[in-house]
Design a protein around this nucleic acid. Structure first.
Length: 188
DNA sequence: TCGCGGATGAACT
DNA sequence: GTTCATCCGCGAG
């Protein structure tokens, strides 16, 4: 298990995020992540512990879930020793199985878009504040497992949709994977 | 395929 | 009152 944030962001690519529902299981491979470092103004841990971000300060492997823009939940993995506020944002999955358990809106959403983007990923797997603080490598309803498949080459770019420290190349993705979010120019 | 703008809710200053 | 690591629908090319 990596002991720093950037290594964890790379490590998580190709791992499997599993969600257990009462009526079945849904899962997808992680194909896109972003690293948020402790001394990084774009990181929620930058200003220290608050009631909202306290999970970010738990030891590596805990979930930090929060509501963004009032509409979307974001799922992060805390990435450092206890007391350090840093994490990895999960931005996109490649659906593996159980897509019938993923959320269908009133108008059917294209399966390519079901888990493409951090807000849609959590909507599809119905991740919300109840999962905040969960241990992701030993959990009951939501956890991360490994996969033997080769992910091929890893791409790197600036992070998407932020205003602070926007030049840092802390976004990682499986090169060429169709489930990676963002405009194409970010994905080379 | 892109870029734009409005909706949305909770935490923080 | 401001900020925010988003999503969706729309229109132009």
């Amino acid at each position: 298990m990596p002991s720093d944030t950037v290594s964890l962001a790379r490590f998580l690519l190709g791992k499997v995020l599993v969600r257990e529902f009462p009526r079945g299981v849904a899962a997808g491979r992680i194909v896109e992540t972003e690293a948020y470092l402790q001394h990084d103004p774009a990181c929620h841990g930058f200003r220290g512990v608050t009631p909202r971000n306290r999970s970010l300060f738990l030891e590596c492997g805990h979930a930090y879930v929060y509501l963004c823009y009032g509409t979307s939940y974001m799922l992060n993995v805390s990435s450092e020793a206890a007391g350090i506020g840093a994490g990895v944002l999960l931005r996109a999955l490649e659906p593996l199985y159980g897509t019938e358990h993923m959320r269908i809106k009133t108008r059917p959403i294209k399966s390519i878009d079901l888990t493409r983007g951090p807000g849609r990923l959590t909507a599809a797997l119905r991740v919300d504040l109840r999962h905040d603080g969960l241990k992701l490598f030993a959990a009951e309803q939501l956890w991360i497992g490994s996969d033997n498949q080769d992910i091929g080459s890893v791409g790197q770019s600036a992070r998407i949709g932020i205003s602070k420290a926007a030049a840092e190349r802390l976004r990682f993705f499986v090169a060429g994977n169709r489930y990676v979010s963002g405009p194409r120019k970010f994905n080379r």
